[in-house]
Write a protein that binds this DNA or RNA. Sequence first.
DNA 1: CTGAAAGCGCTAACAA
DNA 2: TTGTTAGCGCTTTCAG
Lengths: 367, 367
Amino acid sequence: MARSMHVRRPATLASLAAELGVSRTTVSNAYNRPDQLSPELRRRVLETARRLGYPGPDPVARSLRTRKAGAVGLLLTENLSYAFRDPAAIGFLEGLALACEDAGTGLLLVPANPEREDVAAVHRAGVDGFVVYSVPDDDPHLAAVLERPVPTVVCDQPDLGNVDRVGIDDQAAMHALAQHLISLGHRRVGVVCMRLARDRNDDFVTPERQQAAHFHVQRARLAGLAQAFASVGVDWATVPVAERFDHTMASGAAAAAQVLERDPQITALICTSDILALGALGEVRRRGMRVPADITVTGFDGIREAEQAGLTTVRQPVMEKGRAAGKLLLDSAERTRPRAVTLSTELVLGSTAASPRGTAEERWFGP
Amino acid sequence: MARSMHVRRPATLASLAAELGVSRTTVSNAYNRPDQLSPELRRRVLETARRLGYPGPDPVARSLRTRKAGAVGLLLTENLSYAFRDPAAIGFLEGLALACEDAGTGLLLVPANPEREDVAAVHRAGVDGFVVYSVPDDDPHLAAVLERPVPTVVCDQPDLGNVDRVGIDDQAAMHALAQHLISLGHRRVGVVCMRLARDRNDDFVTPERQQAAHFHVQRARLAGLAQAFASVGVDWATVPVAERFDHTMASGAAAAAQVLERDPQITALICTSDILALGALGEVRRRGMRVPADITVTGFDGIREAEQAGLTTVRQPVMEKGRAAGKLLLDSAERTRPRAVTLSTELVLGSTAASPRGTAEERWFGP
DNA sequence: CTGAAAGCGCTAACAA
DNA sequence: TTGTTAGCGCTTTCAG
């Protein structure tokens, strides 16, 4: 069917009504309440609409009137496109998208560039609620979201007092991983972690910075480690913890190198994400070390790539997190007090962790 | 002040203006045109706003007034969550997200479930334009989008006459791949392709169905194959072409099995996507065939997993497609006539294609 | 089953 | 610099 070449006269519901000689209500009903008018009249309305090129009720005007946007906003701290590079973020998105789809709701990715402090996009977003995924607790975008008078669900955040949240017990999960390493005999370890705050610090981290970290998830994981190792007499202040701003395998590799340079005697390299761990894995092998014979490497997240690499890690249900966040937000009808969903995690015993070799003899003759 | 209300009616720009004893314009200006009023007055406005809990101008009302939503809609044929499983789709999304981010625009994922014919979500989407990614040409959601009076860019679609589009030359790319196989000596081949229409047909495909395929991309790829092989005397009607509705490795494996059952003599299995090819690869190996010694397997797309598997395939710039689509849409200020962007592809010679046994003299064609 | 009236909350000429 | 005036396009009681 050829489309007419005429300039689209922006037909409105009112002009249609005028053309038909009926009231606006009737036209509105033709679209929204078919049972409120005779089939015959409805047919006439719809057919005249087509003839006039009336595209149906304007969604924005309808939203204004009904106070419903039919979409939820997703705020990510990273560049919008980052979400599509990190497998964990993709999993979260998938789960959230699933929940939205079930509810017939749109999902609006809000462009919140962490570099600029431009919060306007948050204000401009026509949504019925927000999901905030893993942003620093001092992020201005988060503050802007919390000021919007719509329900919000935060993910991987500390208790904000007033909003629903979903997450895992990062501290306990990491503590369990640490216990595992401790039981294997590791005492001298190094750590590679993701960014702890909005400023770039591709270097070692002081204990103060660890405790003051603005990324709840990273803070909790480091706390879990510190607690576990301190409990067996390790002075956590002496443990090299290397931070990286960019969450890439290259960063993981560089941080691993930095840690190994600082203390070549470590028997385990604990990474706070699988991506970093995969990078670290590459780096230690590049240096001729065997894993786990010469050094143990661990991750966190349980992404597929990690599984393929046989990484010892903690698996968390990223997709479920997204879905739970969506459900929480879309159910918020019955919301009375803030709700919190904590999902469970699982220690994955891969092939990258083993007991450290204490002696040269052991090194020669193997297990 | 004698305000003893307990239920605070959500403050509006008007109520703020009243409270301050200024006009609504002034308040509006305080937010949108700071240079249009004295800093002092602006400070007062903003501060009173905070006190009253006024969250700033309502985005929907603003959109209605300015006729700008600040977002573009993305229509995918698959379940919303599907987009996060297919690497090619993720790449496209990443590119599109990048373009949106550059423009400070939101990206709304429209829930368009292909099962239901529920087009309402398209009508409900408050967006300034649409990007339509790889949907069948008879998809009602696509029709609904085209009826909306906003600019639209389609991706991987035939020429719709009136809208911008971006894509690759699928037919030429597949033709080139076919030529490569032909020069290696392949004449007896089988094909595995993605769904060709909205109805499920997990079976062989007739030539008619091939030509009438509603998915432009698949139709073009099959046409490229048919043309190349016909030109060397192969009767395309005798070539087994197995279609699969679901785009998964499992589907690829099943389709490969079906083709091999039909004609165990084929020397090459040509798949119209990498995902299918990876599944086919698994299946032929499961059957004890070596690749490429016993059989050649090829894909299409050039996703990372394919590269890792050494698949012979066609690489297309999926991320660039997304970015180009976004740019086209967001530039549509200067749009006069429909524009089309065709990106280039590259034949990737992996390790899964070689001459069929018995035609050793063709091996000079090289690595 | 249909219509009249009353906004939803905001912005943008244009005046003052 | 500030205010006045008109809507943006639609939905929704509430009467008839």
